[in-house]
Amino acid sequence: MKIGFFDSGIGGLTVLSEALKRLPNHEYLYYADTDHAPYGPKPKEEVREYVFKAIEFLVNEGAQIIVIACNTATSIAVSELRQKYSIPIIGMEPAVKPAIESVENSTKRVLVTATPLTLKEEKLKQLIQRLDKHHQTDLLPLPDLVSFAESYEFSDEAILPYLKQCLQSFDISEYGAVVLGCTHFPLFAHHFEKIFSSEVRLIDGSSGTVSHLEKLILAQKVEPCFNASLTFYRSSKKLESSQEIEPFTKILKQLKAI
C-alpha cells in the first residue's frame, strides 16, 4: 500500500518512524512543506492553502491513505479534506486524553504544549472541555521549537534556555504529564526530561495515530508489499540525491526507525 505522510517540515518524521517500525512493508511518501514552515505563527487561511496543495500532490502521487502528521494542519483542515477526498485521511491531535487519564487520581496537572495556531483552534478547546472534568489542564505555545528543529538546532545551549524562559511563569512541580502537541516536539524530549521530574510523563500522539493507520490497513486486507520504499519530497520537489535525503534519514536513524 502507498501511504502518504505530510507535515510542515521534519516533525512528521516522529510519526513516520513509528509507522516504519510497526508497518514496514509498505511504500511511504513523505512530504515536508519546508518552503512554508513553520505553520504555527501563520494566518489560518494561508496555512489551509498550503495543506490542500500538499494533500492534492500526495493524492496525485498515488497515495491510498494519507496521514497528516501535523497537529496544526489537522486542526484547521482535516474535516474539509475528508469531504473532498474519498481515500482515508488520518489526522493528529494533541494527546490530551492519555495525559488527563494519567493524572486522574492525583492532584497533578497536565501541560499541553503546541504551536500557537493549534492552541487557538476550537477543535482543541472542545477536546479539553470534553475531557478535562477537573480543570487540570494548562496551555503553553512553544513556536520556536519548530524553528529550532527545522534549523537542526538541538543543542542544550540553545534549547534549555528557551524552554526555561517559556516555563518561568509555571510551577513545574505541579505537573504529572506534559503533552508534546506538535510532531516536532518529541525531537526535544530529552530537553524536557532535563527540566521536568523523571516522574512526569511526556506524551505525544504518534503511537495512537499509527494504531489508527494499522487498523485501516487491516480493514482493507492489504497484502504485504515486497517492494517497500520511502520517498521524500520538499514542497512538491522529489528528493533524488543522497545529500538532499540525508537530513531526513539522519533523523529517522536517531529515532531508530532505519
Score class of each variant (00 low, 15 high):
124 L>D: 01
116 P>H: 02
192 F>L: 03
118 T>A: 04
188 F>A: 07
100 I>A: 09
5 F>W: 11
60 N>E: 14
19 A>T: 01
131 L>E: 11
15 V>W: 09
67 V>P: 04
80 E>W: 00
11 G>M: 08
113 T>H: 10
247 P>F: 13
40 G>S: 05
59 V>H: 04
56 E>P: 00
77 A>P: 07
89 I>N: 02
153 E>H: 07
117 L>D: 00
139 L>P: 01
126 Q>C: 02
39 Y>M: 04
153 E>C: 13
28 Y>K: 09
5 F>Y: 13
4 G>R: 07
231 T>Y: 06
244 E>P: 04
51 V>N: 01
19 A>Q: 07
44 K>V: 10
207 S>N: 15
71 N>P: 05
257 A>V: 08
66 I>Y: 03
234 R>C: 13
236 S>K: 15
119 L>T: 03
211 S>M: 14
88 P>G: 06
141 P>V: 03
148 F>M: 12
32 A>W: 03
213 L>K: 08
235 S>Y: 07
71 N>G: 05
161 P>I: 04
23 L>W: 08
126 Q>R: 14
250 K>W: 10
211 S>K: 15
105 N>G: 11
209 T>H: 08
248 F>R: 11
244 E>D: 15
16 L>V: 08
195 I>G: 06
184 H>Q: 06
142 L>S: 04
134 H>T: 11
105 N>W: 10
245 I>T: 09
84 K>A: 01
108 K>C: 04
180 L>S: 09
103 V>D: 08
27 E>N: 14
6 F>V: 09
78 V>H: 10
14 T>H: 08
151 S>M: 10
37 A>M: 12
134 H>S: 12
129 Q>W: 03
54 A>K: 02
66 I>M: 03
51 V>G: 01
129 Q>G: 06
86 S>T: 14
229 S>C: 02
65 I>E: 05
173 S>L: 06
6 F>D: 03
127 L>R: 13
125 K>Q: 12
202 L>D: 07
130 R>L: 12
122 E>P: 00
38 P>F: 04
20 L>N: 08
33 D>C: 01
92 M>K: 05
96 V>S: 09
255 L>R: 14
77 A>M: 05
253 K>F: 11
62 G>N: 07
84 K>I: 02
137 T>L: 12
152 Y>V: 00
94 P>R: 07
186 P>H: 08
114 A>M: 08
158 A>S: 14
224 P>A: 02
218 L>V: 05
255 L>N: 12
181 G>F: 09
236 S>F: 15
32 A>E: 05
120 K>V: 00
40 G>V: 07
237 K>R: 15
194 K>W: 02
208 G>L: 10
168 Q>C: 11
47 V>H: 05
166 C>W: 03
